[in-house]
């Protein structure tokens, strides 16, 4: 089973990371899911693949009522991101899935009906959650051609999907990055190979540099916090991506 860890809390405003499942079979990539709670409602960020649904569900439902999940934010269309959609919809068929307009007719292959999807425009959009204004930030071509991240200005948290992802070895399973230079070695190959556009990467680095970010939360690996956030952005800005081999 996965564990939940509160990474931000301010009254009814809360971020929970759902991470690390020792029982997960090795052939499945490890993923982090995040739940944003505000005013008794929840937004689930990149809920994960259907195979890991039991682990995510049991961890999440231990501290939140799954029928109160008002929506899912899918950073992009990958199976490890959102193939569990149909399973979550069983708990609240009215639940919305916020995703790039580009994938609006692709993701229904995972589940949902026409009115399940809220297409996000390329320039991003505000996603309201019981009065909290969350901001979908463009991250196209990083790695998916229709890709968005989610910024919570109040919590100063940026959920960054596959950007910042690291494929960590078994002995480095901490939730937060502890030593940037040793951590980033596990991120380098991934970013070179998966991120497709140097131009898009440049624009993203520029865009997020203007945001106040205490925590940068990727869908794989560990969370960057404090000075490591800017360290990561600088590192990514320098990295040459879109190459088969490093």
């Amino acid at each position: 089973m996965k564990t939940t860890q509160t990474i931000f809390e301010d009254g009814g405003h809360k971020w929970t990371a759902i991470v690390r499942d020792p029982a997960k079979p090795e052939f499945l990539i490890d993923t982090n899911e995040y739940l944003v709670q505000h005013g008794g409602q929840g937004l689930l960020l990149d809920p994960g693949g259907s195979e890991i649904f039991p682990a995510v569900f049991s961890a999440l439902s231990s501290e939140f009522d799954p029928s109160k999940i008002a929506g899912i934010f899918a950073s992009h269309q990958d199976p490890d991101i959102v193939s569990s959609l149909a399973l979550w919809l069983e708990f609240n068929p009215q639940m919305k899935c916020h995703v790039s307009w580009l994938w609006g007719s692709f993701i229904p292959h995972f589940g949902g009906k026409g009115d399940t999807f809220v297409p996000l425009p390329d320039e991003g959009a505000v996603i309201p959650l019981a009065g909290l204004q969350l901001q979908a930030i463009p991250a196209h071509y990083l790695h998916s051609s229709g890709n968005l991240h989610l910024y919570d200005r109040q919590a100063r948290i940026l959920f960054s999907g596959d950007v910042g992802a690291a494929l960590l070895p078994a002995e480095k399973q901490g939730l937060f990055v502890e030593d940037f230079s040793s951590h980033i070695r596990f991120a380098e190959g991934f970013h070179r190979r998966w991120m497709g556009s140097n131009e898009a990467k440049r624009q993203w680095c520029e865009r997020v540099s203007h945001l106040e970010i205490d925590m940068l939360c990727p869908q794989h690996g560990a969370i960057y916090q404090g000075a490591d956030v800017q360290r990561f952005i600088n590192w990514f800005d320098e990295l040459h991506v879109g190459v088969l081999r490093s």
Partner: peptide
């Protein structure tokens, strides 16, 4: 998958 979820969260009424 739901059967596994029921094993992981056996007393969940909504499930």
């Amino acid at each position: 998958v739901f059967a596994e979820a029921a094993l992981a969260a056996p007393d969940h009424a909504q499930l």
